[in-house]
Simulated scan of single mutants.
Amino acid sequence: MDFTGKVVLITGASAGIGASCALHFAKLSADLALVGRNVKNLNKIAEQCTKASGKEPLIIIADISVEENIARIIKETIDKYERLDVLVNNAGIVIMATFMDDIKNFDRLVATNIRGPYLLTQQAIPHLIESKGNVVNVSSIVSSVPIPAMMPYCMTKAALDMFTKCVALEVAPKGVRVNSVNPGPVNTELFKRAGFDEERNKGIFAMMAATMPLKKYAHGEDVAKLVAFLASDSASCITGSRYEVDCGLHLGTPVLDSKN
């Protein structure tokens, strides 16, 4: 795959899956606009991208849960590159909360995980129509696998999946594709940012790996490669689809084990 001359806008690019996507697209020669809240981390990722591609990415410090930032993100990207080919809606937060917890948890999750991508995609679509570009939403396997301890988070990802389908259907006649990638556990610092210490974070991943059909968990690079494929011309006939990268988690536990 080659993204030479293509402009790729990635939110949540300062860490985790977003950072992996940034580095992978840089290696594929894309022109990058990287959005994030952590200035230090974003600069670090941008430097790595520059080393990988020889091209310096555009850095945009912004929180997509703040509506005033949305138009600025698109404006700065277009001012710099005069086009937009791919939008990767990756930014997201996790809050461990159940149905009975404070509704403010739900509101915070919706603001970042759904409302932000909704508004940013609205602003991006006119430019994507011009370039016949596409959107890749980074959702989650929990959009279809209920976890009561993460109920509001699960709800936002389920909403993002339906957003993907509805927008894909609406903009397909205009030549724009919209797809989602739904990772299972990925070895990032997402749980640390949710409040877990290093020891508990390792314990969670070890426990999850043991329950996976493939007995492992994914890494950021695994997700980034799929995002890039869906954003590429190789996926020109794919839209409104969701792709699990979860080491088989969505398959569940067999009702009847062949060993018994």
Score class of each variant (00 low, 15 high):
V227M: 04
E221R: 13
F191E: 13
T253D: 05
T50S: 07
V7H: 01
I95C: 04
F106G: 02
K132M: 09
C237Y: 11
I114P: 00
L249A: 12
C49Y: 07
K44S: 11
A235P: 07
C166H: 10
N134K: 01
A218P: 10
V227L: 04
S241L: 00
V245A: 05
L84M: 07
I73V: 15
N89I: 09
T50R: 03
A194H: 10
Q48G: 12
L226F: 02
K216V: 08
I10Q: 01
K174T: 14
V171R: 09
E189I: 15
I103L: 08
G248S: 15
A46K: 00
M208S: 14
D257H: 11
A26N: 11
C237R: 07
E244F: 12
S53G: 09
D257C: 12
L58C: 08
A194L: 11
S29Y: 06
P183G: 13
S241H: 08
S53C: 11
S234R: 04
A19L: 06
V186P: 06
Y81D: 15
C237Q: 12
C247N: 06
S258W: 07
T164H: 00
E47F: 00
S143F: 01
L169E: 15
I64C: 02
A124I: 05
P117D: 14
S14I: 08
M212H: 10
L109F: 02
F163S: 08
I59E: 13
A19S: 12
D63Y: 00
I238Y: 05
N201Q: 11
M207F: 14
L109E: 11
D257M: 08
N260I: 12
M150I: 04
D85Y: 01
I60H: 01
N179F: 02
D31Q: 10
Y153C: 03
I74G: 07
C49D: 13
A33K: 02
K132F: 12
Q123F: 06
